[in-house]
Design a protein around this nucleic acid. Structure first.
Lengths: 259, 259
DNA sequence: GCAAATCGCG
DNA sequence: CGCGATTTGC
């Protein structure tokens, strides 16, 4: 059976409902991980997801952050934030659901602002904690999918102009190295199917005709433990929604598995 | 030939385009006077009016005020504000167009805030200057239509609760008397056709279910010099748009004439 | 360039 | 309540 997961930074789940409905009413997406929902839990448009046939776990705050996982099947377990006993919990930036022996972790990794900003340290700490969480789950005999807006472009071909991005918090050597470390033992499912350049999932609103000129970033990722990765049949970026009415600045990244 | 004029406080002409298009693409309105357009001239949605077949004269500012007159026929003359040589000109609150020997004056009379506020004095001065303008034009042998948001409910039946409105700047004895004076020699065209109570053109957004409960005001008026008034075939309030999506807090008032 | 929040206003 | 303007964030 073909099982599809998607990650999509929506930049406000309420503003993006028309885009989400247009997409999901015409596609089978089994698990949908959203970032930047920008809605308090009491403001989350739960009914819209229920109407599309989804269960949905979500945790948000006003204005910033916020994550959700919508799924056609009800998850067996939900973890808000990191359950490693440390502070802060980051419950509006990390959310995990378990289906049987598969953990799906959805993260909105802090952007980091600039390499000399405190937030950049927070970003690194956040990544280290994802690594711990993934390791713990693998040690526990589980299979793992880690998806989300990672705010890291792993390779030169993952940004439009790598030359002038050396000091960018999403492309600095240090953050790419750290991200590489966290990804040790995981497979970049998208890249394993699509090795070519020019594949982006985010185009800044402020860059003129960014989509047409394809000046973007690949910072939204789908990573899998090897046992799952070898069951993956395809992975692709669904570019269309970035060109629809009132788009997010990101577009969905998907992967299918033969489970 | 039946000739129809309408007055409509749009509360932002840009926000009200869907309402205006829904209305005007299904009705013949020869002259449409708008108030509270809330758009600088460079921001006025001229093309939308051109697409509906209108000429349009407009003068606005950001955030507040702003008037426009759209007409199927091109006017012979346009006057922005008051042309009596006095200051202030009030060019974003008063606008006149002439078709042959008929002057159409469109005003957004200042609300006045409170009876002890300077703006209430400005309101009175504004009304006195409309009186002068109308008198001058009649003396000049012209026929006159004065329409707009007058911010005066002339009679008890023109407000939902006259008892507790005695000190309201739109219903105080003094402002009604002054408005009555300005209207000397003119006919309240709407009232001449519709004498019954409960006829309102404005329902405050802040009053819960104001439209259903009909808690409103009749402060938008169509007044005509007697020569024109006797040619009027009907006058009515078009209530529907107040119930449409994203409505103004006002609704159009119309009058038809056999010219 | 978008989105949300806050604010002044009626 | 719902406009526009302003500010902040990415």
């Amino acid at each position: 059976m073909s099982w599809t997961i998607a990650t999509f930074n929506v930049n406000s789940v309420r503003s993006r409902l028309p885009v989400l409905e247009r997409w999901l009413n015409n596609s089978k997406v089994d698990v949908l991980c959203l970032q930047e929902t920008k809605a308090r839990d009491e403001d989350f448009p739960l009914q819209a997801f229920v109407d599309m046939g989804y269960f949905v776990a979500f945790r948000g705050q006003k204005s910033y952050n916020g994550v959700a996982i919508a799924s056609l099947e009800e998850p067996d377990e939900i973890v808000y934030g990191f359950d490693d006993g440390k502070e802060p919990v980051f419950d509006t930036r990390a959310l995990s659901v378990r289906f049987g022996d598969i953990w799906v972790m959805n993260t909105y990794v802090p952007q980091g602002k600039s390499i000399d900003h405190d937030d950049y340290m927070v970003k690194q700490e956040f990544l280290r904690r994802t690594q711990t969480t993934i390791s713990d789950r693998i040690s526990d005999g589980k299979r793992v999918l880690w998806v989300g807006d990672m705010n890291v472009a792993p390779e030169e071909k993952d940004v439009a102009n790598p030359k002038n991005k050396a000091k960018h918090v999403c492309f600095h050597r240090d953050i790419r190295d750290l991200f590489g470390t966290v990804c040790q033992g995981l497979v970049d499912v998208f890249r394993s199917h699509r090795p070519e350049e020019g594949e982006f999932s985010f185009w800044d609103y402020r860059v003129k005709n960014a989509l047409d000129r394809n000046i973007g970033w690949r910072i939204d990722h789908i990573l899998a433990s090897p046992d799952l990765a070898k069951l993956s049949s395809d992975s692709w970026i669904y570019r269309d929604p970035r060109g629809w009415e009132k788009p997010s600045d990101h577009t969905p990244v998907l992967a299918s598995f033969d489970l």
